[in-house]
Design a protein around this nucleic acid. Structure first.
Length: 893
DNA sequence: GCTCTGACTTGCTGCGAAAGCT
DNA sequence: AGCTTTCGCAGCAAGTCAGAGC
């Protein structure tokens, strides 16, 4: 159906889908959403709301300083502003360590902390308290000594380590001593390692509010050596051994986390709590605070006035709709899985009307007829066989093509298609080169096409896809995210994924379930003669279509709306509101877990320590994984060998996290934490769970007792956002826009490091750097020449000849001095650029910007400092964060 | 109480287009 | 103008977490 034709006018989507205006449409709708809000809301209503109440933190030392440490060396760093320099390969300095000692240790108070029922919204005395350390990311508060993380790979590291005594058999002391050395060759340092955390994480509790408290602990980390991951072969942190499922007798608690002890009382409690937290009633009032806040800001922002009008309109209509819905949900439920209904809320409804055109399929395979060789002989393949051979051939120059597992899985699946009696049997005899070359050739041809041809092609594609690009949700035209069905290919799992290389078969309409509004036209199946697997009308979910993942049929691939849609925007906003709410609770939460470091109940102790690590290091929760997934861990799934004690009170982490990215970091921790970790390790072997009494659901259940809706991942959002907020506030000085943008990038970088967001070094990095240093040499030579000329000019002598032996122009000393100054400036700039380039070569800034930094912080900061928001957000981020654009300039996280 | 399922968020990479440089 | 570098975005893998069901 011609979506746009009918829609545009109606929804004032004046046209162009292209962007922005649309975005604002339903922005303020508070209605539907948020179950979570509902939980939160109540609470949030109690927090001081306006930004205005927020004192500007003076915060002496940001956590973010990044002094550089030599990898491997454990160094604690104090919050020295000076240390802010970027990553850097500087050496660790003992003085830094000393400094850290001088930091007021919040520790002391630990024992004094009274246990308060965190559950009540700890009403924070607003203002002042906010600047206390509590609001800082924990990590920020600590001194992380060395930290490094890097993309998987570190086999050497691993080896070095593993050769050491099995931790299980070591005494705590023994363990402590071992670690250090080996691995830390500079290269292997992961991002996080580049920082240091300030010391004193959880301890904050008592001493409170002076400087660091509100910062994310993590933010206080400092960088240390350089990260390197470049082309290293996948290294394995100590972890690499796959979960030894069976090889360990104690396996019960080891890799296979099975039944864990659980504290009945706790869980029971939890349940209650969480249920309580969600009662719908709250919605109403709950919405208040947030909405109010938004309103406020909107009002104050004169610029947004005009926009607001539009928005309001739209909003109101959608709000109406939404409110109607809630009741419907129940009714509709019969179509959806009944299971989906939210027991306590009835507000699971996500939309009232939904129209879209389904999905588009990749074109059928076109055989090329190029023959591969087997044992030197050209081989005839059927189109189906050729298709799979081609999938492999085109990956010839990727690392995958050399991986044993990849090849094995590929061959297994290909053999099925080749059939039992096919001549092709052994991979070693296969030569895919002809196909590979054909493919390269095709690529080249494409490249050589004229601009015109390219344009035409693009337009054709657009024409075909246009209708799939849009959906109409509750009367509003919204962009669809991934409306293209994934083409067949070989599965490229990350890290050492056991299924890499398997064939992802072609998805057909009969694999796809469509979700669409009742009464809306059912999308036509684009492949003649075929039909959808199923059509549902489930308005409690946001997906438009899904199919089963061909690699893991138990899992699904969904088609959702684009990030710029209001449905997504809404949940984004809720996410940040929840994180902001944590600010009000963090003080008590830290006090609570600090107290529990020594709790007699082992599970409680583990929860306390795990929460501390999540808070301080921004670790992920760490769900259990199946054996047919890559062997990575998060906090709850840390294995004994992933953490080593470094006397007197440091922990060295080394594991593969999400996406098999290595996390390698040495951090100074509270002594009780240090001791507790030692206890958790005692009597266990490598491969066993460090937190054997814990899993993510227990941990999250516990967190919910402390704050409605709190889960492990909220800490990441909180720590990232608060770090940005504080750094921006503290470091922005008068200056031109460019300088301010640099401040922003710096803050962004700190967050990326806290979150361990890495990227691989671009292939051309080295070349680029050497080109730059060549230029630098030239500049320096030029400078020398100028200086010589100047000296001569002052004596009335003519300049020396240039490199080619040609005479140079005779310049006056003043002119030469000017030139010298210019050249110096150029050199400085180039040095800065080179440093930045080097620093950021392995740091990915985008991920945190997209997922962790409350856009309102950035928008408000831009408004306050007259930085055009476009300098910070690109087009798609502007669209995604439309809901944040009218924030009050005084907004603080 | 635990496991499994389902839904949704987070994360990195690679490709193509745009921007910058010579 | 042509080449290089950066940027934006699509693609899709891999997490988190809630809730149902056994």
């Amino acid at each position: 159906m011609a979506v746009d034709t009918c829609i545009k006018p109606k929804y004032h989507d004046d046209g162009e889908d292209d962007d922005e205006p649309m975005i604002f449409k339903r922005s303020k709708t508070t209605s539907k959403q948020n179950q979570l809000n509902s939980e939160i809301k109540k609470v949030s209503s109690q927090r001081p709301d306006g930004p205005s109440k927020r004192p500007t933190p003076d915060t002496s030392s940001p956590n973010c300083q990044s002094s550089s440490l030599q990898k491997g060396k454990v160094v604690s760093i104090a919050k020295t502003p000076a240390s802010k320099s970027l990553i850097a390969n500087s050496k660790a300095s003992t003085s830094l360590a000393d400094k850290s000692k001088q930091l007021p240790r919040q520790n002391s108070g630990i024992n004094n902390i009274e246990k308060k029922p965190l559950n009540k919204p700890p009403i924070k005395p607003n203002a002042d308290s906010e600047d206390s350390d509590d609001d800082k990311p924990l990590s920020a508060r600590l001194t992380v000594a060395t930290a490094t993380s890097q993309k998987s790979n570190a086999s050497n590291v691993v080896k070095g380590r593993s050769s050491s005594i099995p931790s299980s058999s070591m005494s705590e002391k023994a363990r402590v001593d071992i670690k250090k050395s080996s691995e830390d060759s500079e290269d292997e340092i992961p991002l996080s390692s580049k920082f240091q955390l300030k010391s004193g994480a959880g301890s904050s509790v008592k001493k409170s509010y002076d400087s660091d408290e509100e910062k994310p602990l993590a933010s206080k980390i400092q960088q240390n050596g350089s990260i390197k991951k470049e082309n290293e072969p996948l290294k394995s942190p100590k972890v690499l051994n796959k979960r030894p499922l069976c090889d360990i007798n104690t396996s019960v608690h080891s890799s296979v986390k099975k039944p864990k002890l659980s504290d009945a009382s706790v869980s029971a409690k939890v349940k209650q709590v969480s249920v309580k937290a969600e009662p719908k009633k709250e919605d109403d009032d709950d919405d208040v605070p947030i909405a109010q806040r938004m309103k406020k800001s909107a009002t104050s922002d004169s610029k947004s006035q005009s926009m607001k009008k539009t928005i309001t309109k739209v909003v109101s209509s959608s709000m109406k709709k939404t409110s109607k819905k809630s009741k419907k949900v129940m009714k509709n439920s019969k179509y959806s899985k009944s299971t989906k209904l939210q027991p306590s809320s009835g507000e699971g409804q996500k939309w009232t009307t939904l129209e879209h055109n389904g999905v588009i399929f990749p074109p059928p395979y076109k055989p090329h007829g190029v023959k591969m060789l087997y044992n030197g002989q050209p081989i005839d393949l059927t189109p189906e066989q050729e298709e799979v051979a081609t999938m492999f051939a085109v990956m010839k120059d990727t690392e995958y093509a050399t991986k044993e597992k990849f090849i094995e899985n590929f061959m297994n699946d290909w053999r099925v298609i080749l059939g039992r009696n096919h001549v092709i049997k052994k991979f070693e005899l296969c030569d895919f080169t002809p196909i590979y070359e054909w493919h390269q050739n095709e690529k080249e041809k494409k490249k050589q096409m004229s601009t015109e041809e390219k344009k035409t092609l693009k337009e054709e594609k657009l024409k075909q896809e246009e209708k799939y690009m849009w959906a109409v949700v509750d009367g509003v035209k919204e962009k669809v995210g991934n409306f293209r069905v994934e083409p067949p290919g070989l599965f490229r799992g990350r890290g050492e994924h056991p299924k890499m290389g398997k064939l992802k078969k072609r998805i057909r309409p009969s694999d796809i379930t469509i979700n669409i509004g009742k009464g809306a036209p059912i999308p036509e199946c684009p492949i003649p003669g075929e039909r959808w697997k199923e059509v549902k009308h489930d308005n409690t979910v946001t997906w438009l279509a899904f199919w089963n993942d061909p690699i893991n049929p138990k899992e699904f691939k969904y088609v959702f709306l684009a990030a710029s849609s209001s449905l997504k925007g809404q949940s984004d906003k809720e996410k940040y509101e929840k994180a902001r709410l944590l600010k009000d609770y963090i003080h008590d939460i830290r006090a609570n877990y600090t107290k529990d470091f020594v709790n007699k109940d082992l599970m409680k102790r583990q929860i306390a320590v795990a929460t501390y690590l999540i808070d301080k290091l921004a670790l992920r929760a760490g769900n259990e994984k199946d054996d047919d997934e890559a062997d990575t861990v998060g906090c709850c799934t840390l294995k004994v060998e992933n953490v080593e004690l470094v006397a007197p009170n440091k922990l060295q982490f080394d594991f593969l996290g999400k996406d098999s990215i290595r996390y390698f970091n040495t951090v100074e921790v509270e002594l009780p934490v240090y001791k507790a970790i030692g206890q958790f390790q005692t009597g266990k072997k490598d491969g066993e769970d460090l937190f054997d009494k814990l899993d993510t659901s227990k941990l999250n259940a516990h967190l919910k007792e402390l704050m409605p809706g709190l889960t492990a991942k909220v800490f990441r959002t909180y720590n990232a956002s608060i770090t940005l907020d504080e750094m921006l506030n503290k470091e922005t000085k008068d200056g031109d826009v460019a300088e301010k943008v640099v401040v922003y990038q710096h803050a962004n970088k700190e967050v990326a490091i806290i979150c361990n967001h890495q990227r691989s070094v671009s292939k051309s990095h080295t070349a680029q750097m050497s080109r730059l240093s060549e230029k630098m040499d030239e500049l320096k030579a030029l400078l020398d020449g100028l200086k010589t000329d100047l000296a001569r000019a002052k004596k009335g002598k003519p300049p020396l000849k240039d490199a080619d032996g040609k005479p140079k122009r005779n310049l006056a000393p003043e002119a030469l001095e000017r030139k010298i100054n210019q050249t110096n400036a150029k050199i400085e700039k180039m040095e800065r650029d080179m440093k930045t380039k080097e620093d950021l070569k392995t740091v990915a800034l985008g991920t945190s910007k997209i997922n962790y930094l409350d856009p309102r912080i950035s928008v408000a900061w831009c408004k306050r400092h007259e930085v055009p928001i476009e300098k910070i957000f690109n087009k798609s981020l502007l669209a995604k964060f439309a809901w944040a654009m009218d924030v009050d300039p005084s907004f603080r996280f």
